[in-house]
Design a protein around this nucleic acid. Structure first.
Length: 273
DNA sequence: AAGATTCCCAACCGCATTTCG
DNA sequence: ACGAAATGCGGTTGGGAATCT
C-alpha cells in the first residue's frame, strides 16, 4: 500500500516513510515547530524534501489527526459540503475536525462518489420511465386520429424499431379503442405497480437525493432534455423486472385521457415533494 | 493453491496562490 | 511593482491488501 522507498536525482528520499523518519520529524517539530519546510529536513536530519515533510506531518503525524472509519454523520456532512463546495477538499476538511483534505478526497473517490453515482442512475432511470409514460399518454390522446405515425414519431426518439413495434403493440392492446375503459375508481389500484417502482427503497430519498438539484428541478429539466440515446438499454433493463406480458406502463395505457392527471398525481406523491 | 483483478490509501506531481525581499 | 521562494491545493499514481476466479 505504500510506495517503495527510492532516491531522486538530488539524493532526496521518496516513497514510504519509516518509523525512524517519522520519529525524527515528529521530535523536531515538537521542539522547534515548522518554521520553514524547505530548511526543516536538513536540521531534522532527514533526506527528504520539505514538501514531503510537510505532507507527512499534515496528513499523518500532526496531533489530533483522526484515522479509521468514517461515521455516517461524517459521510453525510462530506456529501453535503461537496454538493455546496465541489472539490474544495481543504474547505471541506476544515469542517471535519481531525480529518485531512487528502483523506477526505480519498474517501470521496473510493466510497462516496460511487454511492452518489448509483443513486443518480436509479433516479435518472425512473425519471425516464416517467418521461416515456408522459409521451405515451400524449400519444394515447392523439392515437384516435393517426396512431401508428404518431407512435413512431415518439418512439423513434427513444429506441430501435423493435422497441417501437413492441410499444405500438402494447398501446394497441391496451388502448381504450381496443379494450374496456376503466372507471376512475380503478385508477389508484392500477397505478400502484408503477408507482411502487417510483417509490421503492431504491428511490433517491434521504441521503441519496443529495444533488443540489431538487426533484422538481429534475422533473422540469427532463422535459426540456433531448431524447436520451441509451434508452433501448435502459428500457430493456427496466422492463426485465416485469412479468411476462406485463406492460411497462399499464396505468397509462389503461387510462387514456386520465393519464395527465395521473402523472400530476405521481408528482404530488413523490418523495421529497 | 495460485494467478488475476480490484480496492484502497499514502505519497507524489504540477500548478496556483501567497509571502517576502 | 516585480520576481523568486515558500506554501497550499487538487489530481493522479504506485503498490500492498483483499477478493475473485
Amino acid at each position: 500500500m505504500v510506495r517503495t522507498p527510492s532516491f531522486d536525482k538530488n539524493g532526496m528520499k521518496k516513497g514510504a516513510w519509516s518509523p525512524e523518519e517519522d520519529n525524527k520529524l515528529r521530535a523536531y517539530i515538537h521542539r522547534y515547530g515548522h518554521w520553514n519546510w524547505r530548511e526543516l529536513p536538513k536540521y531534522a536530519g532527514l533526506s527528504r524534501c520539505g514538501k514531503s515533510c510537510r505532507l507527512r506531518w499534515m496528513n499523518y503525524l500532526r496531533p489530533n489527526v483522526k484515522r479509521g472509519k468514517y461515521t455516517k454523520a461524517e459521510d453525510d456532512l462530506i456529501m453535503e459540503l461537496h454538493e455546496k463546495l465541489g472539490n474544495k477538499w481543504s474547505a471541506i476538511a476544515a469542517k471535519l475536525p481531525g480529518r485531512t483534505d487528502n483523506e477526505i478526497k480519498n474517501h470521496w473517490h473510493t466510497h462516496l462518489k460511487k454511492r452518489i453515482k448509483e443513486n443518480q442512475s436509479t433516479f435518472e432511470l425512473k425519471q425516464k420511465a416517467i418521461q416515456i409514460s408522459q409521451s405515451l399518454a400524449n400519444l394515447e390522446l392523439q392515437s384516435h386520429e393517426s396512431p401508428r405515425s404518431e407512435i413512431n414519431h415518439v418512439t423513434d426518439e427513444f429506441g430501435s424499431k423493435d422497441v417501437n413495434d413492441e410499444i405500438y403493440q402494447q398501446i394497441l392492446e391496451s388502448s381504450p379503442l381496443s379494450s374496456q375503459e376503466l372507471s376512475s375508481s380503478d385508477f389508484s389500484s392500477s397505478m400502484t405497480p408503477d408507482y411502487a417502482l417510483l417509490s421503492d427503497k431504491n428511490w433517491v430519498g434521504e441521503d441519496s437525493m443529495s444533488s443540489s438539484e431538487s426533484f422538481e428541478e429534475s422533473v422540469r429539466n427532463f422535459w426540456i432534455e433531448p431524447a436520451f440515446e441509451d434508452f433501448s438499454y435502459q428500457q430493456n433493463e427496466f422492463s426485465s423486472n416485469l412479468a411476462e406480458g406485463e406492460s411497462m406502463f399499464p396505468c397509462f395505457l389503461d387510462h387514456g385521457d386520465d393519464s395527465i392527471e395521473w402523472f400530476h398525481q405521481i408528482l404530488e406523491e413523490l418523495p421529497g415533494k
